[in-house]
Design a protein around this nucleic acid. Sequence first.
DNA 1: ATAGGTGCAAAAGGTTTGCAATCAA
DNA 2: TTGATTGCAAACCTTTTGCACCTAT
Lengths: 150, 150
Amino acid sequence: MDIPQELRKLGLKATLPRLRILQLFQESKAKHLNADDVYRLLHDEGIDMGLATVYRVLMQFADAGILIRRHFESVASVFELNEGGHHDHLICTGCGRMEEFLDAAIELRQEAVARERNFVLHEHSLSLYGLCGDCADSVQPGSGRRLRRS
Amino acid sequence: MDIPQELRKLGLKATLPRLRILQLFQESKAKHLNADDVYRLLHDEGIDMGLATVYRVLMQFADAGILIRRHFESVASVFELNEGGHHDHLICTGCGRMEEFLDAAIELRQEAVARERNFVLHEHSLSLYGLCGDCADSVQPGSGRRLRRS
DNA sequence: ATAGGTGCAAAAGGTTTGCAATCAA
DNA sequence: TTGATTGCAAACCTTTTGCACCTAT
């Protein structure tokens, strides 16, 4: 089905800001964008939309399940397209690279932990931080010294 | 050893704000406090210290390893005493109650996931969100309805 | 036509910083 | 004494909100 119609089904009018933001997430190389990224990228395309609108649309999309809002260590929250499958993140603190993963054993143990403590689990957030192969290699070899965090 | 001396060993002068904040974390019932909590609790004790100082001290303590800074879903970051053992959190979205847990299997799998992707792991953050027994019980029984998040 | 959406500017949290005054060592 | 630390106020950054104008349906 076409996008405008899908938006309407969610009770959202198919306005230009909404269509452009959705398109950005669908086409952008970076899967994770914060409000300012979106604002800036659209401006670079010559689309002049207010930051407040970006925030409003991102929230509406997150509420509607089109986007997922994530809270990593950074101050600003980032959004990514909700493509259905749940996943967690592995983040390189050197270059910012982000990989997704899903580990069945971890998912099962999370359920078990919650059950043992009599909790009904609704969601979870798991982020692993470290250095990717490339960044680990750029550490001064031989010395114990470590590159400062970038 | 006494606290003032330990602070000095870390290169921090044993000032009143520092001593009071440390004492607060050691004696407070709530293990997780944000900057504003600390500021408010100390003011309630009649200690009149600036919010900026609270922030500075919390950061210094976190850098020194005395405190751990956590980023949960809420906007403000919270701090807890670093008592050595790593642990993750199980948080009730109904009443805010927080339980700590450590699951060996999860820890191992995290290492494995990182290894498979050629990452050197430095840290991770795992938070489980759900309803604790008490809050789950307060859901309208019989109906499928769920209590709104408080 | 009109309910919903937008831009702008202002406000609202949370956090950081510059600076002169103060304090621990 | 002297460099570290503090309080205050102002600045910053991210996010939210009020309001008059605009637009998709």
